[in-house]
């Protein structure tokens, strides 16, 4: 695998007591590309995400993030909020975590917390209504509006996020992650629970994020039509280890992958083989 790597995971291991969730996992994600992480349920994909985004401290291994400027950050040494703040890694959750009692717009404003905090002079300038803060707030609202437009939720900007339909919540969560202006966007099953039309719209959204904004994407997904269509590179996991990787075509034809899915769930295996063909 050649090219400019934004993320390289080296011999990552994660154990919970006796359970080995991830073992000796190495892979890399290229800059401005979509890398997919697939595998049957319980393969350890979400655990990998939690290690990358600092919610779990890995039992072993290294996770390196290299920014455009050349600086490299050891993610396994940063903890929770700093990974989002300093390393510019944003994520969504498998079971959506919006702020349900806040409006869509407010959700996207919270995502811009760190930039707004600086502009508000850590609250003091904001409290006296300094023009510098008011400008920054206006720009933040513009960015949020822009994202609401992109995910097609502009007309619902002032509605509580908790009232949104499932598919809308998924898209809003992606918009919220993007409002942190990340270098790497990690999406945990963004197409779960979406219908075919919504899945297609999601694929388009992710492609536009990659192509127009140049954001690198790491994607966990079960919906093979999405994975096969948009991924540049696919890493397949089973039982905590990597069993295959390559382009969508290579992965689709790999007997080990088919076996893993067949062993796990016939429907999923069928989906792998149908997807993208």
């Amino acid at each position: 695998m050649s090219g400019d790597k934004i993320l390289s995971v080296d011999r990552l291991a994660m154990r919970f007591g006796g359970i080995v969730a991830v073992q000796d996992l190495s892979f890399a994600a290229e800059r401005k590309k979509i890398t997919a992480l697939i595998g049957p349920n319980g393969a350890g994909k979400t655990t990998v995400f939690n290690c990358i985004t600092g919610f779990y401290k890995p039992s072993g291994g290294a996770i390196r993030l290299s920014h455009d400027g050349g600086s490299t950050i050891a993610l396994e040494r940063l903890n929770d909020f700093r990974i989002a703040k300093q390393a510019k890694v944003a994520r969504t959750f498998q079971n959506i975590r919006l702020f349900p009692g806040m409006t869509a717009l407010e959700n996207l404003m919270v995502a811009q917390h760190n930039a707004l905090m600086r502009a508000s002079g850590f609250t003091f300038l904001g409290l006296i209504g300094a023009p510098r803060y008011r400008d920054a707030e206006k720009r933040a609202i513009d960015l949020a509006t822009d994202w609401l437009k992109r995910v097609n939720l502009l007309d619902r900007a002032d509605d509580a996020a908790g009232n949104f339909a499932y598919g809308d919540q998924r898209r809003l969560e992606i918009a919220r992650a993007m409002c942190t202006e990340p270098a790497l966007l990690c999406l945990d099953e963004p197409a779960a629970g979406l219908n075919a039309r919504e899945s297609a719209a999601l694929s388009e959204l992710l492609l536009s994020i990659r192509d127009e904004l140049g954001t690198s994407i790491l994607l966990i997904e079960h919906d093979m039509s999405v994975v096969m269509e948009i991924s540049d590179h696919i890493v397949v996991m089973d039982h905590g280890v990597k069993i295959a990787e390559g382009t969508p075509r290579e992965v689709r034809d790999d007997p080990k992958v088919i076996a893993a899915y067949l062993g796990a769930d016939e429907e999923e295996a069928a989906a792998v083989m149908e997807g993208g063909s």
Binding site: F81, R82, A84, R97, F99, G101, V110, H113
Partner: peptide, 11 residues
């Protein structure tokens, strides 16, 4: 509303 989500947003 959600502390985990806050951390994921860098707060």
């Amino acid at each position: 509303e959600d502390e985990v989500a806050c951390r994921a947003l860098g707060i």
